[in-house]
Design a protein around this nucleic acid. Sequence first.
DNA 1: CCGGCGTTCCTGAACGTTTTGAAAAGCGTC
DNA 2: GACGCTTTTCAAAACGTTCAGGAACGCCGG
Lengths: 365, 365
Amino acid sequence: MSSSKRSKPQKPGKAASISDVARESGVSIFTVSAVINNKSHVGKNLRERVEDAIRKLNYRPNLIARSLIKQKTQTIGMIVPDIANPFFPMVVRGAEDAAQKQGYNLLLCNSDDSLAKEETAIELLLSKRVDGILLTKAAGDFSPSLRQVIEGVNIPFVLVMRTYPALTKDAVVSDDYQGAYEAVCHLARSGRRRIGLISGPLKISNAKERWRGFRDALEKAKLTYEPELVVEGDYRIESGFRAGHALLSHRPDGIYVANHLMTIGLLQAVEEMGLKCPEDFGLVSFDDYPWLGVFRPRLTTVELPKHQLGSEAVELLIQRIGGDQGKPVLKKLSPELRIRESCGFAQFVSGEHRRANPEPSIDSP
Amino acid sequence: MSSSKRSKPQKPGKAASISDVARESGVSIFTVSAVINNKSHVGKNLRERVEDAIRKLNYRPNLIARSLIKQKTQTIGMIVPDIANPFFPMVVRGAEDAAQKQGYNLLLCNSDDSLAKEETAIELLLSKRVDGILLTKAAGDFSPSLRQVIEGVNIPFVLVMRTYPALTKDAVVSDDYQGAYEAVCHLARSGRRRIGLISGPLKISNAKERWRGFRDALEKAKLTYEPELVVEGDYRIESGFRAGHALLSHRPDGIYVANHLMTIGLLQAVEEMGLKCPEDFGLVSFDDYPWLGVFRPRLTTVELPKHQLGSEAVELLIQRIGGDQGKPVLKKLSPELRIRESCGFAQFVSGEHRRANPEPSIDSP
DNA sequence: CCGGCGTTCCTGAACGTTTTGAAAAGCGTC
DNA sequence: GACGCTTTTCAAAACGTTCAGGAACGCCGG
């Protein structure tokens, strides 16, 4: 019967709580809270007493409790198909940088290109009450249930590198049409006449955009669109290899590959078939990576602003979290054509696109 | 005055709570909770009523509230120097896979190789009450405050790819000594006599291990250790480039490079200097990646089980979270020597290490 | 001495769950 | 109809915060 209302001593194993600090320093919980959030008017005396107690108990505010009451977790969920795909790390890095800068953390999920996993991941993030979600949708159609889940998300939600016409959500993407268009124009400018395409899965929005850019550039250059010179892959190495075999058997003199992984596959096919680039055909790839510095020939490529893609997505998301109720936005970031050797030497090419070609840099292990 | 204790209707904008469900289905909160966690004895009648209400209100349990009371967040924090470094994505993937399998999520932080950021990240994760922390420490010494923070961490804590003698924490690492040893033995077996090393920062445990393996293998092969053939880099491309220039000026006939990024730099230096591999020198690198398939010559390399590194670290961590109080464990995973062409053709080499050399595979964008 | 105003501190009610201990209900037995 | 034993349901106390609404105090002008 002797226990007064709030007097249990701090249990040994557990982290100190705000009430432990309050007891230790002989003030109320309110005052401790005020000190922590350094609210204005706390007397110097008490403030110091409290700060001492905090240090002494090694107290750390419990952000879970804070989240519960504030209805904000300062956490954003990010779902990518596969972080091990070299495209995503830099995007995630961009996102994390921007998030950290504004006091947010990143909860990372891999969907493994499975729509079911993607759906589960969204549900989970929603249950964990993240403040917003970033999604790079897996390849493949919406299942009705997935669509329902996404439409039903009632927190800020930004698509990254994907967009869907009927969807009422924000999206941050690269200008894939433009990138492909420039790539193919460059091939044409360097004298190629029969230009082939190794495309990504046409169900993914960016693959379709790249295909459109390809087609329009052909038209602009007054080249004919030959259907047998277009092969659809799935953005993986193996499919680039197979597509390469199929495509090269038609002897195109130029190839535009819609992503890096398929380029790797293609180059293996090229070697097997005993062909030479740029002598036998010109090549423009997508995405730039540090290791391209040792590929021979040096690849001309369309670099996407991967880091920026992630950071702008987060910034948009946080703006929404902050209460911005504006209409859904579609933000397109410009790609950059980096001319190197795989279409023939740079001097063969009209000057307008020449620039220094910095090798992208990357940090330590 | 008319408001009874628990009767506010669900506010329109907000997610439904358990009490909304209780009210909707006319039962107590307890019963709803029992249904959610499908505890045994809830009458069939009520169970259905509750489930209907859950569907109707699109109710999702608030895991923040659950975490608060259960003192578990089902979240683990992971700190890496830089996810954009190609080594880490696969490790993170391994971690995420293992975590997901056991119902955990991953909160990802980049320390950017800054000890201060690393410290901040740990503090933050602690405040967010993650159930455990995975850390790949940034290069550089412990500051006293960082050391204090790490030692003071009172939740499960596993080091990944790093270990420190005096530290009383678990660690999961690759057997770097073994990897380097095998690499250098292979160089010696293929007839190289003056073998050089491009090392990582010797303050990082694995760099030191690799250096030890290098030295011992030389001794085993009865080769002399020539100090000018050892150059310390920082695991980045640029340093590999500089180290390559420095090292090659001494004309070694074999080089072992302690990581992939520095190999990229080295190969650029090699080309600039007009040298040829494997004719002028044999090369063994560390880490394998899909794009190595297009490097020429094909690189012989020591592959580390990156995915496994991540997944075993998480499994160990979760075991600790589960209450395992055993002594700190140091788990070493075996590397695998993948013999390709950069030391001369495989047939010149004694058979014991020959094996199929699968190109590692990777998923779509 | 009173009223008004600042400053400084506190009490107590949220936030959305889980869980303990106990009450109610159903049912068989004497 | 009293008693025990299950089965089903509940009310209320946690978990660690934030914050609205006051209270206590000192100071000033009247």
